[in-house]
């Protein structure tokens, strides 16, 4: 167990494997070694940390997601994972092709919290959290990716393109759509 102290001076006892998703905390732990010293997180509030350390619901079903378990993808290591599948830490960080349920839950939080989590994730260096979740795999959108309109709506962003510019940009990027 690791003791974390947030910006509002709350203390959290957290499982080591959960906090080690944060590269920042992992490095800190390596620096201090085995010790009971609390780790201060001056840029993270307790409410955000609660979200960030929500425990995972466990490994996903292997039958349905067999492919994921066999590639450099999951950020949550499944205990049943054979050693041959272990990828280097760098590889796992570089290509997070899968979103664990742990990450998925964050799509449901409100906008204010979402920003704080993005900032916290950036500070804590948790790549899986900083991930594409907010920009693609839109929950309502059947095609799987968020179209620009939906990103604008989700984040309250004003469209400052002229209609001509918007049409031009849309046309320039049509090639990415499957036809």
């Amino acid at each position: 167990m690791v003791l974390l102290v947030t910006s509002d001076n709350e203390q959290f006892q957290t499982e080591k494997d959960i906090v080690e998703r944060s590269v920042l905390i992992k490095n800190m732990l390596e620096d201090v070694g085995e010790s009971d010293q609390p780790i201060p997180l001056p840029n993270v509030s307790s409410s955000v940390l609660k979200k960030v350390t929500q425990p995972s619901t466990g490994p996903t079903e292997i039958d349905v997601r067999g492919r994921y378990l066999s590639t450099a993808s999951t950020t949550v290591e499944s205990p049943s994972r054979p050693p041959i599948l272990e990828q280097s830490q760098d590889e796992t960080r570089k290509r997070t092709t899968d979103i664990s349920e742990w990450d998925q839950k964050f799509i449901t939080v409100d906008q204010e919290m979402l920003f704080e989590i993005i900032l916290a994730a950036n500070y804590l260096d948790i790549k899986s959290l900083l991930c594409r979740r907010w920009l693609q795999d839109g929950s309502q959108h059947d095609q799987g990716a968020r179209p620009p309109e939906e990103i604008r709506k989700l984040f309250n962003i004003v469209n400052d393109f002229t209609p001509e510019e918007e049409a031009q940009i849309k046309k320039e990027n049509e090639w990415a759509e499957d036809r």
Partner: peptide, 23 residues
């Protein structure tokens, strides 16, 4: 910098969607 970080983790399809959001 944070947005740039997020984009680095996105796939190209998402980046192309992102660039159509605003200026």
């Amino acid at each position: 910098d944070v947005l740039a970080q997020i984009l680095l983790l996105c796939d190209i399809y998402a980046v192309l969607s992102f660039l159509q959001v605003n200026r």
